[in-house]
Design a protein around this nucleic acid. Sequence first.
DNA 1: ACAACATATGGACATCTGTTCATATGTGAT
DNA 2: ATCACATATGAACAGATGTCCATATGTTGT
Lengths: 121, 121
Amino acid sequence: MDICSYVILMKLRSVPVIPVNSEDTVVQLADMFRLMGDPTRLRIILVCLDDPISVGDIASRLALSPSLVSHHLRLLKAARVLRAKRHGKQIFYSALDDHVRCVISDMVAHVGEPLDAEEAD
Amino acid sequence: MDICSYVILMKLRSVPVIPVNSEDTVVQLADMFRLMGDPTRLRIILVCLDDPISVGDIASRLALSPSLVSHHLRLLKAARVLRAKRHGKQIFYSALDDHVRCVISDMVAHVGEPLDAEEAD
DNA sequence: ACAACATATGGACATCTGTTCATATGTGAT
DNA sequence: ATCACATATGAACAGATGTCCATATGTTGT
């Protein structure tokens, strides 16, 4: 882990580390979030979390054109969210690591949260 | 937590739950991610994670116009990422709960990850 | 009341982005 | 080699989005 990520991690643990000066790391983070910020792409990610699944199966299961799915898969693979593995004619996609799973899990907890006591001002 | 969120959570724990049928929950999730997917907005969120901070201070610390900051804050407040509290003329923004902190922390771990052994195909 | 400050809002603009269509690449079987 | 199938790629378009500018709202003073 580089120093930039470390600084942000310290911030996240509410240690008073000064400014957000790691410009490129913030951009990297934002890129990842933006990638998950499209409903279609998020659906594709969710489908791939179960088991490795082929492009065609993703398309049919989500009622999308294979072309569109492929376009999105290219971005997700480039961002190392998913990995591709060829078996014969088909190419199976699956999650590259568990971080994305954790991120989504946390986010589900956030949106699922009802109005809590802190809401009042 | 509603049934839709539950289904997704089950998926995240690799329990073989079949389709992603909770359309609106996926859209909610994507909305949150999209919100964090802009570098400027993410910077604003990061600054607000430390302590409650006024709009003007956010603007000066990030070298942005107060107008732009206000526009972004409106979205973040509406999405319940941040909360606003007025003190005199100024309005202080801070994180509404710790979920966002967790989400960012996980994402930092993801982008900070070097090429791991699983990468090979 | 007014002035000064802090924040919010609305419109306009350029840019980015998701989708579609057509086409290309690659693989396995006959 | 040729066909059928699976996936990938490129161009083009409509719609969304971030930023700027001007202006409005709200608050604390005098």
